[in-house]
Design a protein around this nucleic acid. Structure first.
Lengths: 108, 108
DNA sequence: CCGTATCCATGGCGATACTG
DNA sequence: CAGTATCGCCATGGATACGG
């Protein structure tokens, strides 16, 4: 077994933390390819500025693919890269753990 | 398959985010039962105040067990609860992912 | 030894307005 | 439609000093 190091965990953690990043990822997991406005609609409480910033971060890490269509009015869409999909098991593990945790806290 | 929800992922995420929480968990995973001073030594860059605060958080969530010995000088030790150990798979998954990500970024 | 108390810095987040 | 530009808040983190 490989020893878990703080540094490597950090790497993964940075990608999904930030108040919104994991929510964005989940929307993309469930929704396939989405336009900016669709993402915005799926996450009503995030401001445009933050949404843009987080998407740019994810793009820079090759997690998300951003496609710009040279049209008027502009069209841009976003989807998970194949690489980004490798994060799904982590999100699934956290989801399952979170459900059990909620239940545990409820039954106190 | 259960749909992953942002809310449940959030629950898990909150427990291991914060600049130091996951590092503390890793030290406890590898080190079993540790005194406060040992944790402090293992994480030289964290301030006493923050270390205390994060440990209290983890205790409150039943992730970590804090034991106070009524001695002079005081002795307090910390260990992962059985419940806390259920987080290990998540940390392992993130660790593995982080290693591959680092390698990927290196080979650009 | 294991904390609390105080005070301060920083940067992530956000509201709002504007633009190609 | 899909973004920048500005400005400001405040929560998290941190340095330092003190206390049981």
């Amino acid at each position: 077994m490989t020893k878990i190091t703080s540094c490597e965990v950090d790497t993964a953690l940075e990608l999904i933390t930030g108040k919104w990043k994991h929510s964005i990822l989940l929307v993309l997991i469930n929704g396939d390819t989405l336009r900016f406005s669709e993402l915005k609609r799926a996450l009503p409480k995030i401001s445009q500025k933050i949404l843009t910033a987080q998407l740019r971060d994810l793009e820079e890490q090759d997690i998300v693919i951003r496609t710009v269509y040279p049209e008027v009015p502009p069209r841009v869409d976003y989807r998970l890269s194949e690489y980004g999909k490798t994060l799904i098991p982590i999100l699934e593990a956290m989801n399952e753990w979170g459900m059990r945790h909620a239940e545990r806290m409820r039954s106190n």
